Computed example of a mutant assay.
Amino acid sequence: MPATPPGQAKPRTTLSTIAREANVSVPTVSKVLNGHSDISAQTRRRIEVLLTRYGYQRPRAPRRKSQRGDLIDLVINELDSAWGLEILTGVEQVAEAAGLGLVVSAVHNRASLTRRWLEGLISRGSQGAILVLSDLSDEQRAELHRRTLPFVVVDGVSQPPPDVPSVGATNFAGGYAAADHLIKLGHRRIGAIGGPEQMLCSRARVAGYRAALESAGLTPDRELVRYGNFQHVGGLRAAQQLLALADPPTAIFAGSDQQATGVYEAARLSGRQIPDDLSVVGFDDLHYAQWTAPPLTTVRQPLHEMGVSAARLLLRLVNGEHLEAPRIELATELVIRNSTAQPPLNVSKLGDMTS
């Protein structure tokens, strides 16, 4: 970018500038800014890098006296995990570019705190909220609508109603890819550890796993499916149950990277080596997945991009823009590392799993 002569104001970066640098059309740049999902991951990353490099900011409309303050809220169950921090950084990136402050509330699944965030949101005059893994009640949703407070749900516990904007990932496809990878390596006894069974994303990942088995002509075995809490301890306990079976799995698909570390611990305690005795696939591709021993094969969930998309979707609602579709789903991607291999030679090749 050419230097600005002394004494002159720095020229404002336009969409045309970004489009020219990225070798794409202006509408493509606009789609990335507005959180549309019909852009390839590679193109999206290239445009987002340029938006950050040029410090692009949307033109701000003149503020009316009736408008709310320069704040948006992020409400999240837990913030003490790499998962939550990835989403937070995405939301923060968009808020900063738009000149907005960000208020973060961690509710820890406690009813008292869940009520408090709504009271705080209203009293602060926030422009709107991004709700991450919040079990939004009908009463809370009605209150937000009554006060015309825009909100976006990220990876909700249940399927959001059609009138609730939401952002998620292709969880079913991710679960399918994980199981399909293990099947192609030759595994037939494949365990699965989901998160909380009532959560939509957990059910979708396990459903994808089952669909991959059925596509390969295998009958899913209910005994090989367990549910945890997406945390290390839940993965450890569920994996210990699976490995204690009379006919244990030779591979386990864990519904989160944190649960996968629990599977690693269960394998160590049982004297198994990964991947020689047990293959493991996680879900999320958190930053530490590449540093586990061995590095973890996992399904990458674009958490940072989900935060970015949710924040941009919220800003569109704040600006009164029409949403072409209330639901955005970003693609997952299998990342193969060293925690998966062919099953042990001393394990007989079973044609089908018994139900």
Rank of each mutant, 00 (worst) to 15 (best):
M199Q: 06
L200Q: 09
L200R: 13
S202G: 07
A204C: 01
R205G: 03
V206H: 00
A207S: 09
G208F: 04
L213G: 00
E214V: 03
G217R: 03
T219F: 03
P220D: 05
D221L: 04
R222P: 15
L224Q: 04
V225D: 01
V225R: 07
Q231I: 02
H232L: 12
V233C: 05
G234T: 03
G234E: 06
G235A: 10
G235M: 12
R237V: 14
A239R: 12
Q240F: 00
Q241P: 04
L242I: 14
L243V: 09
L243D: 04
A244H: 07
A244T: 05
L245S: 08
L245N: 05
P248S: 04
P249R: 11
P249E: 08
T250H: 07
A251T: 07
A251H: 09
F253L: 09
F253P: 01
A254P: 08
S256D: 06
D257K: 09
Q258P: 00
Q258L: 15
A260Y: 09
G262A: 10
G262Y: 11
Y264R: 06
Y264C: 07
E265T: 11
A266S: 07
A266C: 06
A266L: 13
L269V: 08
L269E: 08
S270P: 00
G271E: 07
Q273R: 12
I274W: 10
I274Q: 08
D277P: 00
L278Y: 08
S279K: 07
V281T: 04
D285V: 02
Y288Q: 04
A289I: 03
A289M: 06
A289P: 04
A289Y: 04
Q290M: 05
W291H: 12
A293G: 02
A293I: 13
P294D: 02
P294Q: 08
P295T: 03
P295G: 02
T298A: 01
V299H: 06
Q301G: 00
L303F: 12
L303A: 12
H304V: 15
H304Q: 15
H304P: 01
M306Y: 13
G307A: 14
V308M: 10
V308S: 08
S309E: 08
R312F: 10
R312N: 13
L314V: 12
R316Q: 15
L317I: 10
L317S: 07
V318K: 13
N319R: 15
N319I: 02
G320T: 13
H322K: 15
L323Q: 13
E324W: 10
E324Q: 11
A325D: 11
R327T: 06
E329S: 13
T332R: 09
E333G: 00
L334I: 14
V335I: 15
I336N: 01
S339I: 11
T340F: 09
A341K: 07
A341T: 06
Q342T: 08
P344A: 07
